[in-house]
Amino acid sequence: MNNDITIEITMPATTCHLRLIGRISEILAEEIGNRDADRAALCELLSVVLTEGVVNVIKHACLSDLNNEIRIRISCSRGILIIMIYDNGIGFDLDAIPDPTFITPALTDKGRGIFILRSLMDMVSYRHANGSNVLEMTKKLDSEKITG
């Protein structure tokens, strides 16, 4: 039985739909996860990386312009989770965003999103390809914890 899953979503470049991202994460985790505990962990992972990825693209590439759209492609095949977030905005340089400081007097209220993505995923990149920008994130999931 082939349990590979790929879904695509197109949405306006606004944070108004972040709750929908959370719901999609729950449904995907239900489909992919093997046991309740694995589903909960997968749901948390998907919710966080999808939200952080989408918000970074909306704020930095699309500059929160509602006329822009983003396209999200999520696939899980042979235990590899791949998330692609496409935009047609001005783009941004992933490497120009420094990790947040952990020193209390110098704490800032921004800059944790990319750090969180890099911490949770195996690979994070942002590049221009085929006429649009794409934020690509991949992670090898624990094979015992996923269906198939």
């Binding site: 972040l18 959370g22 952080e52 704490l107 999103g113 750090f115």
Partner: peptide, 16 residues
């Protein structure tokens, strides 16, 4: 039940 980096940022801002 769900917080992202923006939510954490709001709390850090208030802490400062």
């Amino acid at each position: 039940h769900f917080i992202d980096s923006s939510g954490l940022g709001a709390l850090v801002s208030a802490y400062k």
